[in-house]
């Protein structure tokens, strides 16, 4: 039993919630870029929030089913059809052998998660099945999926029919607000740029991947051509390279970087980063670590009502 990748699109890969505790070895956490959409897609097919699912990016993908199973799609907004019939997102559906699922280009948001009731076969490395393509490990043969790939599935009992209350659906936007804490080298920005960082709306450029997203305007300026040695960075770290175009690090970002770390998107808001589409705007809202902790607790409590566990 299997899924067949008819058209892989820009960047389709198998992802779960990623790895922890391996940053000192140069291994980034990886995992789904939007853990909320992953969790909801999995919930709709009766799976644990962090189960392995397929992450589909921007241009969409076409997938055919070689076995009967339930599936659900959550994330960016796109036109989706099953055998040319429209299929709603955020709902559970049943596919039969031979059915073809076409996921169109995203109109809003950047990534869609396809969860299936059958388990997707993926290589587990460092405690996670997430594909880390730059390192060539995890997921399906350590790489992004290609046309013609066959993903083996293991049949599971079909889940109960379930629908998620609208309040748990992810919220899409073209203008994102990410709450952030000031970074260790924020003082290397000049005064005007320090102000701009937390007041201006930045545009997400075309330079976007699982490693990071460049914000190309307005441009910030550093006090001096600050040469710094490489130091640890994490997903959500905002770096400011000499170009002055802030670079927002994401799930597959390298674990060390040599540019000033000017801000850090808070843990509770990092799932939003995965839905930033080139051309969207991003604002950073300055908060303190204590507030970030409170927001995280409240957000986890809210969603635990559905998921029964913390997902952020």
């Amino acid at each position: 039993m299997a899924l067949r990748i008819e058209k892989a699109g820009l960047a389709t890969s198998l992802q779960d919630v990623g790895r922890s505790g391996v940053a000192h070895l140069g291994v980034p956490p990886g995992g789904a870029m939007d853990c909320l959409s992953l969790a909801l897609a999995n919930w709709l097919v009766g799976k644990a929030p962090g189960a392995t699912a397929m992450e589909i990016t921007l241009t969409g993908a076409t997938i055919s089913f070689e076995a009967r199973m339930a599936f659900a799609l959550v994330g960016g907004r796109a036109d989706i059809t099953l055998n040319d019939q429209p299929v709603a997102m955020q709902e559970q559906h049943i596919a039969n052998p031979g059915d073809v699922l076409e996921i169109g280009a995203m109109q809003a948001g950047c990534r869609i998660y396809l969860a299936t009731s059958d388990d997707l076969h993926a290589d587990e490395v460092f405690g996670s099945a997430s594909t880390y393509a730059p390192g060539g490990f995890g997921g399906h043969q350590g790489r992004m999926l290609a046309d013609g790939d066959i993903i083996a599935t293991v049949g599971r009992e079909e889940p109960d029919r379930r629908t998620a209350p609208v309040k748990f659906h992810p919220f899409l936007n073209k203008g994102w607000v990410l709450r952030a804490v000031s970074g260790p080298e924020a003082d290397l920005l000049d005064d005007a740029s320090r102000e701009a960082l937390f007041t201006e709306a930045f545009r997400a450029s075309q330079r976007a991947s699982r490693q990071g997203a460049e914000l190309d305007k307005p441009v910030l300026s550093l006090r001096e051509a600050a040469r710094m040695q490489s130091g640890p960075v994490f997903p959500g770290t905002v770096q400011c390279p000499p170009s002055g175009k802030p670079y927002l690090l994401m799930a597959d970002a390298q674990t060390t970087g040599g540019y000033p770390r000017i801000a850090q998107v808070i843990r509770a808001d990092r799932h939003l980063m995965g839905q930033i589409k080139p051309g969207d705007t991003v604002r950073f809202m300055a908060i303190e670590p204590d507030e970030a902790a409170q927001i995280l607790r409240e957000k986890n409590v809210l969603y635990a009502e559905l998921f029964g566990q913390d997902i952020f």
Partner: peptide, 12 residues
């Protein structure tokens, strides 16, 4: 020694 972010700390 300070916060580098909400959930990470840095000593220089």
């Amino acid at each position: 020694i300070r916060h580098g972010g909400d959930d990470w700390l840095i000593a220089r």
